[in-house]
Computed example of a mutant assay.
Amino acid sequence: MKLLSCPLNGPRNIEEFQYLGPLRGRPDPDALSDADWARHLFRAENRPGAMLEWWRHRPSNYVFLAERHTVTNAVIRTFDPSELEPGA
């Protein structure tokens, strides 16, 4: 069983969580042409390395940030959004 540590609820089974996407980089679909939106969906960059992502603990509906390495899938840290450094 894979565990993810929720900042509010502690370590929990990964099945209790929902991935909500990257912290940055998700454009507004209404602001893009159909071609640009398709390019974003099907040709998104997938750079190796650490990435900040939004996650939600479903039972408590708590939304938090996780820093995860995209190659190893290792979670580096999880934290409350209020702890995000300005400009990050």
Score class of each variant (00 low, 15 high):
L41T: 05
S60P: 01
W55E: 01
P86Y: 06
N73G: 06
N13E: 06
P7Q: 07
R68N: 02
P11E: 07
N9Y: 06
E15D: 08
P86F: 06
G25P: 08
A50M: 07
I76S: 06
G25V: 13
A50L: 09
P22H: 07
F79D: 05
L23E: 10
E85I: 10
A66I: 04
L65I: 07
L3N: 08
F17P: 05
W55K: 00
Q18N: 14
F17M: 13
V63T: 15
Q18F: 03
E45Q: 14
Y19F: 14
A50W: 00
R12T: 05
L84F: 03
G87F: 02
Y62H: 14
S60A: 09
W54H: 09
G87N: 12
I76K: 04
G21V: 13
D28T: 04
E83Q: 15
R12W: 01
Y19D: 11
K2I: 09
R68M: 01
G49H: 02
G49W: 02
F64C: 02
I14C: 02
F42E: 14
N61A: 13
L23F: 14
K2R: 08
S60M: 03
T72W: 00
H69I: 06
N13Q: 09
T78N: 07
R12S: 07
Q18T: 07
R47A: 11
D34W: 02
A38R: 12
S5W: 00
E85P: 05
R26P: 03
P86M: 03
V71T: 15
R43K: 09
S60L: 05
W55C: 01
I14A: 09
G49T: 03
A66C: 08
T70S: 12
T70V: 05
D34I: 08
D34Y: 06
P81C: 02
N46H: 09
L23T: 04
G10K: 05
F17I: 13
E85K: 12
Y19R: 11
P59C: 05
S60G: 04
V71P: 00
G25Q: 08
L3P: 01
I76W: 01
I76T: 10
C6Y: 00
F64L: 04
N9T: 03
A88C: 15
I76G: 02
L8P: 00
V63P: 01
P11G: 02
G10E: 10
D30P: 00
F42H: 14
A74V: 06
I14L: 03
L8F: 03
L4C: 06
H57K: 06
H57E: 12
F42W: 12
F64S: 01
N9S: 08
E85S: 13
F17R: 04
E67R: 15
H57Q: 08
N61L: 07
E67L: 10
R77L: 10
E15F: 10
W54C: 02
A44D: 03
